[in-house]
Write a protein that binds this DNA or RNA. Structure first.
Lengths: 155, 155
DNA sequence: CCTAACTCCTCTAGCGACTAGAGGAGCAAG
DNA sequence: CTTGCTCCTCTAGTCGCTAGAGGAGTTAGG
């Protein structure tokens, strides 16, 4: 083996491959204080240990589940103090669950309206297009006001 | 009636109230060329006509349905040329429908995982907390890799 | 006519969570 | 010793707004 890295340590690239988090994103997490700044090699490169790798996996998974950075910050703090009550972690997860349920409901309504649009489309010209028509006339639809998806749009 | 506005014209505030789009957002739509720059009153205020009001309602509704600004731009161009085939509009709506369906599927998977988290929580201390545990150990879950929600997070 | 309250104007900066790119240096293999 | 990869820092851009400063036009009441 031709490792320059100290034993049991990983480069940022290895950490990225292992966690599925991109290199610039790892650096970003460090910048915002989500991941501690790791020691550096002589050449000035970041050198991650097993604990960092676990933390990164935790963050990745939490982001996949849609937790916001601030929520993850709180969850990580909780993880660091295992004697505390887990009520806070529970609350964060519950909030997220409620939000996900709300978004599913709202997306399901959108789906119905989009289906009406594409099914009603007669594939003729624009003047008779159901897609354009429904968009133009809000009164035509069952869909009530209020942002469809909290962030505005389903990105 | 004590209108200073030309007959049949509306202030930006009226346009905002009628459409449900906020005043700064209307100005933003003008800036990015989604809404044409309206004529101004002597005092330099924007003065919207009925066509603008319709266009704004169209945009609002399309945004509610989660169409991206660029997609709306295309839809508006189509609307302006009613003799063209509506195939493009149809394709945009279909794409959006597929995306919404994908997001519902992915959010449903998230929901299941979040439910396992909160249901498994024994309300004790963090060391034994299912929420923290599942987040820490990705192998514990049925949830496979890849960003859960396209934009990363369910805002 | 004057004033207070309201709306409007422009402009810049900020949000969240990254992503992209420039310009340079370290490092492993041939 | 060169080639090519990875890494470094730094700045700026993404999307769709939102917030706020600082000023000007407008309306209702006194």
């Amino acid at each position: 083996m031709s490792r320059t890295e100290p034993a049991g340590m990983f480069t940022i690239g290895e950490a990225a491959r292992a966690s599925g988090v991109k290199v610039p994103t790892i650096r970003y997490y460090e910048e915002i204080g989500l991941l501690p700044a790791p020691p550096r090699t002589e050449g000035g490169r970041r050198s991650y240990g097993a604990a960092d790798m676990r933390r990164l996996a935790f963050i990745r998974h939490a982001r996949e589940l849609g937790f916001e950075i601030e929520a993850i910050r709180t969850l990580l703090q909780l993880q660091d103090q295992p004697d505390q009550s887990c009520a806070a972690a529970d609350a964060i997860a519950r909030d997220r669950l409620i939000e996900v349920e709300r978004r599913i409901a709202s997306l399901t309504a959108l789906k119905a309206e989009l289906q009406r649009m594409v099914e009603g489309c007669s594939h003729g010209h624009v003047a008779a297009c159901r897609v354009i028509e429904i968009l133009a006339d809000h009164g035509e639809c069952r869909h009530h006001h209020g942002p469809a998806e909290p962030g505005g749009l389903g990105r």
